[in-house]
Design a protein around this nucleic acid. Structure first.
Length: 419
DNA sequence: TCTGGGGTCCTAGGACCC
DNA sequence: TCTGGGGTCCTAGGACCC
């Protein structure tokens, strides 16, 4: 069998949320460029969303970490500039980037809002040098869109992704198999994809500190200590990975969820139910929008001490009705909740199936045609006039947002944590 | 003024069936 | 009548990613 060498790019927007805000401000006449100052995108602490979502390169010098509280970031750097997140802007910027990338290859996987994989295998007749091509793309994005990207090039997705994480910003790096020992093995093991907060200390205990240590470790011991995860990261450390660059879409989506940290602790069942309903509104819309039904509903609670619990239940009849999902969510919540003050509530659905052949269960009553028509009518009003254009009476004067999570009318694909 | 939200996959224990 | 095991499904929790 002929074995052609694959050419994979991984494109990563540098400090995406922050850069996109910076560029937008410059385009709207502001004369300071946030990227040149210690700055960050962060939520509002008053509504208990006060964490750092993205930081500038100067902010990085103060050891400010994504995910840490704004409070602690300000202690590290009192002059840190904080700007609020703007998700609609990010989606627009992400789409603009992908529009450019599509001109170079149709084989694109959107891995998240700011990362893509591109496949250039068997295209050497069109592009003879991948590094030249990557520089062309990088410079064009910078010129036309105003933000910078890093591009990693290799023969598989894992190595391309590691390469794009090398020196930033505005760079192209290669990491082909013959460069692994020189460029990847000296890096700390926590720089490897899938070695996170829990795995790193376990590896340190085994005297593994660099990716090279991991690559050359006894695979049998790793498998014994870390099960299948041990084998996977050992393969990664050796550059072994062969997943395809796959077009992401709603068809292979496994589940969807919606959750929120409320601005105050919830202490009564009625308010909790209302928040659950507002979360179900968005899930129902997204299900119907993607022509899916779900068979499993799950509710999660984080109490004011940050203690998590969850409960799930299977439907024997797949549904996309907001009301029936909400009804199940209420029941699950009532069985789960111990009465402690609630900080965060979530609803998620999984075991999705197409809504075309909706099998009716013998044990559950049919969702009435009337209810279906109502969901559809509400969806179209919200698509047209916004998600708050139509609101359930129960929410009036309640202080609870009637629709939580917003309505996505575009086709921005879901993200993934697996290659 | 302390700690978000949205995904996927894996594991372990118990139920249940043969 | 001294305690089997294999398989599958369900559930809760945890790990990882962005």
């Amino acid at each position: 069998m002929k074995c052609t060498k694959r050419i994979i790019f991984h494109i990563d927007v540098n400090s995406a949320y922050l850069s996109w805000t910076a560029v937008d401000k410059l385009q709207h006449g502001e004369n300071i460029d946030l990227r040149e100052f210690p700055s960050a995108v962060g939520g509002d602490p008053l509504s208990r969303h006060g964490i750092i979502l993205a930081k500038s390169i100067p902010a990085k010098k103060y050891n400010i970490q994504t995910g840490e509280s704004i409070f602690s970031a300000k202690q590290k750097c009192p002059e840190l500039i904080i700007v609020p997140p703007r998700y609609e802007l990010y989606i627009r910027c992400s789409n603009a980037l992908v529009d450019i990338l599509k001109e170079y290859t149709p084989v694109i996987q959107r891995f998240s809002v700011d990362e893509c994989f591109l496949d250039f295998t068997n295209m050497e007749n069109i592009y003879d040098d991948p590094v030249v091509l990557a520089n062309t793309i990088k410079d064009r994005v910078k010129k036309e869109l105003g933000f910078t990207v890093n591009i990693g090039i290799s023969s598989n997705k894992l190595l391309a992704k590691v390469a794009s994480d090398f020196k930033k910003p505005d760079r192209v790096h290669t990491l082909f198999p013959n460069e692994i020992s020189k460029k990847m093995w000296p890096l700390p093991v926590e720089d490897l994809f899938m070695v996170g907060r829990a795995t790193a200390p376990k590896l340190h205990k085994l005297n593994i500190f660099t990716i090279g240590d991991l690559a050359n470790y006894d695979i049998n011991i790793l498998k014994e200590k870390l099960k299948s995860h041990g084998l996977m990261i050992w393969n990664y450390a050796n550059g072994i990975e062969d997943s395809k660059v796959k077009k992401s879409n709603f068809i292979n989506m496994k589940g969807m969820g919606n959750s929120t940290t409320t601005s105050f602790d919830i202490e009564d069942r009625k308010t909790a139910h209302m928040v659950l309903l507002s979360l179900c509104e968005t899930i129902g819309m997204r299900l119907r929008n993607s022509h899916n039904c779900c068979k499993l509903v799950s509710v999660s609670i984080k109490d004011s001490n940050f203690f998590h619990s969850s409960k799930q239940r299977k439907f024997y009849c797949a549904t996309d009705s907001t009301n029936s999902i909400a009804k199940d969510a209420y029941e699950l919540f009532d069985e789960l909740w111990q009465g402690k003050p609630i900080r965060h509530l979530g609803v998620s659905v999984s075991e999705l199936c197409s809504n075309e052949f909706n099998q009716l269960s013998l044990f559950q009553t049919k969702i009435s045609d009337k209810e279906k028509a109502l969901d559809t009518a509400i969806d179209s009003i919200r698509m047209k006039y916004g998600s708050n254009s139509i609101v359930r009476a129960a929410f009036l004067h309640s202080g609870v947002k009637p629709v939580n999570g917003g309505v996505s009318t575009d086709d921005y694909p879901p993200m993934s944590s697996i290659l």
